[in-house]
Design a protein around this nucleic acid. Structure first.
Lengths: 143, 143
DNA sequence: TATTGTTATACTCTATAACTATA
DNA sequence: TATAGTTATAGAGTATAACAATA
């Protein structure tokens, strides 16, 4: 196979970010194929578990996705019996989201697999370097 | 707006990567709306410019995308008159890709905007930190 | 036999705009 | 009027499988 000249691409933060994200996403999918969930779905489950009763709009805001997008995400998780839409006590327009028992079990299992996955992708990096990376990444988004 | 508990998410490399990537992608789109190209298209243009005459399969391999996916990417850039499929001299199955004059001009303009964009997203970071970040990211993908 | 480009198809993730029921 | 959820729709990005032309 021919060698390629990548020019300035390897010097760009954006390019390296994309490459890293692709690789990490792929490893995530393989690591969690037992649970069959995506990084996005894992985030949703974690957020619902940690904020039981939040509604869909609120969940979308927390994750930076539109509320119309949340519908399909929750539809899928509800269809698998992992998440429940229960009536919100104080506002009949909205649902209070919560994990089912099965959802809680799956999340527990997923946490272990995610921990393994994180170890694998960061296996090269010292703990100090991992913290550095996270700190640098979070400064990238401006906060 | 209610505060949320993000639990372990902020401690995960994968989560921070995704958030950063979303923010950077968005800034890229705004920064290059004058050229109207995406990060992926910019990569394609850079690669074609730096490896004039490469074919679609080779381009796909370099960027980690399937050759069936490359077709639509090149269709779009060719449709805008930025890229040309010229007959490959030694293999009549394939095309030798190259930039049109207009494509080369646009790429030049895009390089300037991308440089501005990179400065903006990394504005917080010292040059040393930027190099650190890139080094850490590239170690993430294992190579 | 293997490879290049292509097509048909499908799946994910995302958003906008308009609707409904409630507030 | 404004908000929560929904639907219809659309677009980007991706892949797999099969095909014709060529190697």
């Amino acid at each position: 196979m021919t060698e390629h000249d990548y020019d300035l691409l390897p010097s760009l933060i954006g390019y390296n970010l994309r490459q890293a994200q692709t690789a990490v996403f792929q490893d995530f999918s393989e690591s969690l194929k037992d649970c069959n969930i995506t990084p996005g779905q894992f985030g949703v489950l974690v957020l619902i578990a940690a904020n039981t009763g939040l509604n869909q709009t609120s969940l979308g805001n927390a994750l930076g996705i539109d509320r119309s997008t949340v519908v399909a995400v929750i539809d899928k998780l509800e269809g698998r019996g992992l998440v429940e839409r229960s009536p919100a006590p104080k506002d009949r327009r909205s649902y209070a989201l919560r994990l089912s028992e099965q959802g809680a079990e799956l999340l527990q299992r997923a946490r272990g697999l995610v921990a393994d996955h994180e170890k694998r992708i960061a296996g090269d990096l010292q703990p100090t370097e991992q913290h550095q990376l996270i700190a640098l990444l979070s400064r990238l988004r401006g906060k």
